[in-house]
């Protein structure tokens, strides 16, 4: 089921939390929603789930507007702070969620069993939610979101409070679900987006500042190829001169003269790996290191949101 967001705007008083944003998410796509605190991620998600109303624009799910109130049954939602009824046992809570979502009474035990298995809650299923650790509560939050096998999953920071093993498990889970369903997840953990999401959307101050896969974002941000090389058995200055004279190289920088380290920047749309290698061979230098410099997602994020 597709989600289509058109010219969505939400004001809190004079402050614009979401400012005329439009995007689409297709079935089978996992969208990573990034942005600094207060960028409007949570607000956008709350509007999609129908919890709050927008001031302008609309969200349609499978062609139906969220204002109609008929889209709620297609959505599984894990809110930001994972609010749960702490006095309820896990299994009762999942049963409550299942029946309120309108699941057939005979199908409920099967669904609960399935969720307990998928989310690894078997040992904790009879405990009260308030007695669980944060990580297990997070699993209960995921279980309640998925109990009615929704077409769309909206997850607001799904991996907070989980240990590294659990994070890996939950990511796998989300990836598997994302093959058939539509998933939007927000997070502050950048490697997580790369590991889980097909597409990244960065918003800042209520506006979309980047939209694409991790690879395309990198390319946009980086532009030119940068190599870190270490060339031994040679004089630093000659190497510097010769590297500079290569046709594909735009700029050379000596990083560390004592250890013969250089930074080589290629001209636009060119790569210089082979040229550097051949140069070394020709002059009988030892090329001991060649590391392509990757722009980290963190840097892209900072570039786009720190202004």
């Amino acid at each position: 089921m597709d989600i289509k967001i058109q010219h969505l705007t939400k004001n809190y008083g004079v402050q614009k939390a979401v400012d005329n944003i439009s995007f689409e998410v297709k079935t089978g796509e996992i969208l990573g929603f990034l942005g600094p605190n207060g960028a409007g991620k949570t607000t956008t998600m709350k509007i999609i789930t129908g919890y709050i109303e927008s001031n302008g624009g609309d969200v349609t799910i499978g062609g139906q507007s969220v204002r109609s109130g008929k889209t709620k049954k297609y959505i599984g939602y894990l809110p930001e702070h994972n609010p749960l009824y702490h006095e309820m046992p896990v299994i009762d809570y999942l049963g409550f969620c299942a029946s309120i979502q309108g699941i057939n009474k005979t199908a409920i035990p099967g669904r609960i069993h399935e969720m307990v298995r998928v989310c690894g809650l078997n040992d904790e299923k009879h405990k009260k939610i308030g007695e669980l650790s944060k990580g297990y509560r997070q699993r209960v939050g995921l279980a309640q979101a998925m109990i009615h096998d929704p077409e769309i999953l909206i997850l607001d920071e799904p991996t907070t409070g989980l240990d590294p093993n659990q994070i890996v498990e939950i990511r796998e889970l989300i990836k598997n679900i994302g093959k058939e369903k539509t998933v939007i997840l927000s997070t502050h953990i950048l490697p997580e987006v790369e590991a889980t999401c097909d597409r990244i959307l960065i918003i800042n101050k209520g506006k979309i500042v980047a939209d694409g896969t991790a690879a395309t974002l990198r390319k946009q941000a980086q532009g030119k190829q940068v190599l870190n090389v270490k060339i031994e058995d040679a004089d630093v200055n000659t190497v510097f001169e010769k590297l500079k004279s290569l046709p594909t190289v735009a700029m050379v920088d000596i990083l560390d003269a004592a250890n013969n380290r250089f930074e080589v920047q290629s001209i636009q749309d060119a790569v210089s790996n082979k040229e550097v290698f051949r140069l070394c061979v020709k002059n009988n230098w030892s090329l001991t290191e060649m590391i392509p410099f990757e722009t980290r997602l963190e840097d892209i994020f900072r570039d786009l949101t720190l202004n």
Binding site: T49, P79, P83, Q101
Partner: peptide, 14 residues
Amino acid sequence: RTGTIELLLTKNVT
């Protein structure tokens, strides 16, 4: 206060 109202109202209920 606990925020569970958000979870309740985003279920399939009016």
